[in-house]
Amino acid sequence: MIGIINYGAGNIFSLTAALDRIGIEYAMINEEGDMENYSHIIIPGVGHAGAAMQKLKATGLTSSIKKLEKPVLGICVGMQLLTRHSEEGDAHLLNVMDIETLHFANRVNLKVPHMGWNKVSPMQNSKLFQNIEKDAYFYFVHSYFIEYNPTFTLAYTDYGIKYSSAIQYNNFYGVQFHPEKSGKAGEQLLKNFCTI
């Protein structure tokens, strides 16, 4: 069963709807004691990374998240929280992975936000991308991106610059796209996460 970190960072209706569609049970994690009830943890998030980090800190869950040994999946801003620092609000984040979250503006000559369907190319065989076509399209909406890194990048996407559209370090996973809005490929990825 999935535990969703409930820290008030945006709307989770679409995420829970997707889990309902694929028949995966879930519940909300409001405090540290709730963590042990679940086999898998999702950190959702939309909006401003700095603001999201403040809200996460306010729940008192940050240190217990960092200590988790069960599979964790950060989605969008929830993924960015796993990095060291974001240019959005000059925010210091969880630092599960020692990489940076950067702004697209002034780094690419393309429209910002990066909004729409783009290809995701896994770098290696990973359970997270099992049974998903290579270079499948996923749905993205974001203005900040996680730099490419040979250690942490699990899949990359090209938006004028090659960046991390999925990251992994041990049991921690993150995806920049929205699997809950990415058609069949997205639903398969959520199913895959539950089998890790």
Binding site: N109, L110, K111, H114, M115, G116, W117, N118, Y137, F140, D158, Y159, G160
Partner: peptide, 19 residues
């Protein structure tokens, strides 16, 4: 300008065109 670069950019750079 950025807009000129956007227009002159490869039409296949970036995201897929949406229907």
């Amino acid at each position: 300008s950025l807009a000129d670069q956007l227009l002159n950019a490869d039409i296949n750079a970036g995201v897929a065109k949406r229907i």
